[in-house]
Simulated scan of single mutants.
Amino acid sequence: MSYRSIYRQDLFAGMVVLVTGGGSGIGRCVAHELASLGATVALAGRRMERLEATAAEIAEDGGKAICHACDLRVEDAVKEMIADIVARAGRLDGVVNNAGGQFTSPAADMSTKGYETVLRNNQVAQFTVAREAFNQWMKDHGGAIVNISADPIGGMPAMVHSAGARAGLIAVSDTLAYEWAANGVRVNTVVPGYIASSGMNAYTPEMQAKFAAGVKKMPLKRMGTEAEVSSVICFLLSEGASYVTGACYYVHGASSSIRQDWDIPDHTNAKPYQGFHRYNGPSAFLGDYGKDGSGEDQA
């Protein structure tokens, strides 16, 4: 089997795209789709074993990937990583700022250090990666940057640190899109909602139960797939989005429109798109359609 992308096979032929957090979850899916479309994918993250596992999968499927272990919160490490990618791959056409992470805690119990750590994980690191990609390659050659955020509208109870970081990242993207437009660099934001990704496994059983309860309130009555997020990211990296910059794309199934005074009846009409042939997330959150959205289990 191979990735079932909606885009033409050679869309990113000859291009190099950095995917941070490419060893798992949405980042891993994006890396696979980009590679299936001809890109050389540079995978970055703290865990080399995860990156190498994804790179091995991509190679097995006939694609190309390189790996670079990097703590994205460390400025000098990011500078070295971008320089290494340019040296090894010869160019850097796109960046998917996907890496991030947070923990759950009531705001009253959260330390300033904990708040600042998540701010660095989910906003400062993304800025540093984007800045270095611009300074070391895109300033003179153009490119596209997609920052992955989360929906801050209405707040994020138990994750105030992430709320601050994610809201700020959207504003950072808008600012960079303006400043770097003259260099042919586009900067956009993608905001996934509840996605049935392997990242769900990092949460406590209590939080997972809250997610499951939340699905019942959603208009589409299911979570999204990694592939549904990846297809939006690939569009924003492509030439088809050449007039799209400073935009924020919400991939959340209208989950931010949940109203307490309006009930949506249970239904199974929102069939998920599952193009990722190596998906390994918690598929139970996708409903009754199976991993490829057709009723067939494609594990």
Rank of each mutant, 00 (worst) to 15 (best):
I195M: 08
N188K: 09
I85T: 14
G290C: 06
H252N: 15
D140H: 07
C248E: 06
V215P: 06
I258K: 08
W262C: 12
G199V: 06
V30E: 15
V124M: 12
A69K: 05
G168V: 13
L51T: 01
R73V: 12
L34T: 03
L51W: 05
D261V: 00
G281S: 06
S36R: 07
I195S: 09
G184S: 07
D109C: 02
D61Q: 15
N97H: 05
E228C: 00
Y7I: 03
S5Y: 04
G164N: 05
A163D: 03
G62E: 11
V129L: 04
A125L: 06
A42L: 02
A133F: 06
P282I: 07
H141E: 00
Q136Y: 04
P282C: 07
V16Q: 02
D84E: 15
R8K: 15
E116R: 02
S149I: 13
D61S: 14
R88E: 11
E206F: 12
D140L: 00
M207G: 04
G295N: 11
D76G: 11
L37K: 09
N97L: 08
L18H: 01
G143V: 01
T245N: 12
D140R: 06
G25N: 03
T225M: 10
T225V: 00
V187I: 05
D61P: 10
